[in-house]
């Protein structure tokens, strides 16, 4: 694998095909937790972390199920293995690093079956990425999610000073903002190479 191709994969996952703004994955936490900057960045970090775990699990499961010729079990296996691995890691972090747990812990159970996480597993299998590619893809997707999250939180913090119509408060105004951000992200379309 050439470095340039891996870099392009990363940029593609993070900017050009941003999980939130181009694929609409992980919208629920995006709308829910983007109210404040600090919780948004923590959520982003937690999602990146879980994506990495999910990607590693999915790579292993895919190898095993291909050998066993039981591809139809893939979806069920992804869900169960990813969820239980995240639980294990959560317990491990709680024991070994309380500070890290403070930062990530709250969000870990929330995001184990988040669609963005599952999508990393499904996409890398569909596009038959190798091991290194999978890891890079997961990191890129996580970075993209964090970026979108932090941008949105920043805007929403500013917005609190603005006059938003009563009816548009909450979901509606956040969706409009996400639409504008999504249009802005389309400007990255040229830099990532083919999808």
């Amino acid at each position: 694998m050439i470095d340039a191709e891996l870099w392009s994969l990363f940029v593609n996952a993070a900017l050009v095909n941003n999980f939130v703004l181009a694929y609409f994955l992980g919208i629920c936490p995006y709308l829910g937790v983007s109210g404040r900057l600090d919780s948004a960045s923590r959520m982003g970090a937690a999602v990146t972390f879980v994506m990495l775990i999910a990607s590693l699990c999915a790579y292993g499961i895919h190898q095993v199920l291909t050998i066993m010729d039981a591809r139809y079990l893939e979806l069920i296996a992804f869900i169960v293995v990813i969820a239980s691995t995240v639980q294990l890691v959560e317990m491990f972090i709680r024991k070994t690093s309380p500070a890290l747990f403070q930062a990530l812990g709250l969000y870990l159970p929330l995001i184990t079956t988040n669609c963005a996480i599952l999508a990393v597993a499904l996409f890398q299998t569909q596009r038959s990425y190798g091991f290194v590619e999978s890891v890079v893809f997961a990191l890129g997707a996580g970075a993209g999610f964090t970026l979108a999250m932090v941008l949105m939180a920043g805007i929403r913090e500013k917005l609190r000073l603005g006059a938003v119509p009563d009816m548009a408060q909450g979901t509606a105004i956040t969706l409009v903002l996400a639409g504008i951000l999504s249009l802005a992200f389309m400007g990255f379309a040229g830099i990532g190479g083919e999808t």
Binding site: Y23, A178, G179, L183
Partner: peptide
């Protein structure tokens, strides 16, 4: 048809 339109339409 672009992703942005989806957000606007849902809003």
């Amino acid at each position: 048809l672009l992703p942005g339109g989806g957000f606007f339409a849902l809003a």
